Simulated scan of single mutants.
Amino acid sequence: MRRIWHFAKSALGIIFRHPVTGTSVIARLADGRIILTKRRDNGLWGLPGGMVDWGEDIATVAKRELFEETGLQVTAIRRLVGVYSSFERDPRIHSICVAVEVDATGEIRIDPIETIDVQAFYPEDIPPGRLSHDHRQQLEDYFQGKTTLA
């Protein structure tokens, strides 16, 4: 019994004391617009994305999350924009976010569970001051052509 408790305690420590990994998807349409979702949890605009499920890699998560949240398909993964790991980046949990740029196509649809709205914005039309988490920084790094480790 003591051995089981030791294992359970170690497992809980790993789960609750280590950051979780996720991705942000900077999805670019052929006309140069960027896809943003209006989040149901905080009402702010953000990049599509989410947590890595067991057995997934970042490319798979980017494709899955973009499709689930927007209905769009990834046609190409272009580049790594950055890895964002600051404890302050997400108010819910300590997460490590891998941001990637992708080309996307398809018909936009809203995921009613996670999002209120999905829109495509030209860079100059992205809502100022209304972005969730650290997505403003991720987009600034993207537009500046940076690859960031933060």
Results as ranks from 00 to 15, higher is better:
Glu88Ala: 14
Leu131Cys: 10
Met1Thr: 03
Gly13Phe: 08
Thr148Glu: 02
Gly50Cys: 05
Val61Pro: 08
Gly129Cys: 01
Asp31Gln: 12
Glu101Ala: 01
Glu56Val: 14
Thr115Asp: 13
Gln138Ser: 14
Phe87Tyr: 13
Ala30Leu: 14
Thr147Glu: 10
Phe143Ala: 10
Trp45Gly: 05
Asp125Thr: 14
Ala150Gln: 11
Gly49Glu: 14
Asp53Pro: 05
Gly43Asn: 05
Pro48Lys: 11
Ser86Val: 07
Leu47Met: 15
Val74Glu: 04
Glu88Arg: 12
Gly50Lys: 10
Arg136Pro: 05
Thr147Pro: 00
Phe16Asp: 05
Arg28Met: 15
Thr23Phe: 02
Arg130Leu: 10
Trp5Arg: 00
Glu68Ser: 02
Leu44Asn: 01
Pro19Asp: 10
Ile14Met: 04
Leu131Gln: 07
His18Lys: 15
Asp141Asn: 00
His6Trp: 00
Ile14Val: 11
Trp5Tyr: 02
His18Ala: 09
Cys97Tyr: 02
Arg64Gly: 11
Thr148Ser: 08
Pro91Leu: 14
Phe143Glu: 08
Leu44Cys: 01
Gly49Phe: 15
Pro127Leu: 08
Ala27Gly: 13
Arg40Gln: 06
Gly32Arg: 02
Phe67Arg: 14
Glu88Thr: 13
Val25Tyr: 07
Ala99Phe: 04
Ala30Glu: 15
Arg2Phe: 03
Phe121Glu: 12
Ala104His: 03
Val102Lys: 09
Lys63Ile: 11
Gly49Ala: 09
Ile110Trp: 06
Leu12Met: 02
Lys9Thr: 06
Pro48Cys: 11
Trp54Arg: 12
Leu72Gly: 08
Ser132Ile: 10
Ser24Tyr: 03
His133Gly: 13
Leu139Val: 07
His6Arg: 03
His133Trp: 15
Val74Trp: 13
Ile4Asp: 01
Phe143Gly: 09
Glu56Pro: 07
Asp141His: 08
Gly106His: 13
Arg3Ile: 00
Arg79Glu: 07
Ser85Cys: 08
Glu124Gly: 07
Val61His: 09
Ile77Pro: 04
Ala62Cys: 14
Ala120His: 00
Phe87Asp: 07
Thr105Ser: 15
Leu36Asn: 05
Pro128Val: 02
Arg64Thr: 12
Leu149Cys: 04
Glu124Pro: 04
Ile108Ala: 12
His6Thr: 00
Gly145Asn: 04
Met51Ser: 13
Val74Pro: 06
Leu80Asp: 02
Glu140Tyr: 06
Pro91Tyr: 15
Pro48Arg: 12
Glu107Tyr: 01
Gly13Pro: 08
Asp134Tyr: 03
Gln137Ser: 04
Thr37Trp: 09
Asp90Arg: 11
Ile14Gln: 04
Ile108Gln: 10
Asp134Met: 06
Pro112Thr: 10
Arg130Asp: 06
Gly22Leu: 09
His135Thr: 05
Val61Lys: 07
Trp54Leu: 10
Met51Phe: 14
Asp125Lys: 15
Ile108Glu: 05
Thr115Asn: 15
Glu107Asn: 13
Gly55Cys: 11
Glu68Ile: 03
Arg64Leu: 11
Thr60His: 10
Trp45Pro: 10
Ala76Cys: 09
Glu68Tyr: 11
Leu131His: 10
Arg40Gly: 04
Gln73His: 13
Met51Asp: 13
Ile108Tyr: 04
His135Leu: 02
Glu140Asn: 09
Ala30Ile: 13
Val83His: 01
Ile116Asn: 12
Ile58Phe: 05
Ile77Trp: 07
Arg109Asn: 07
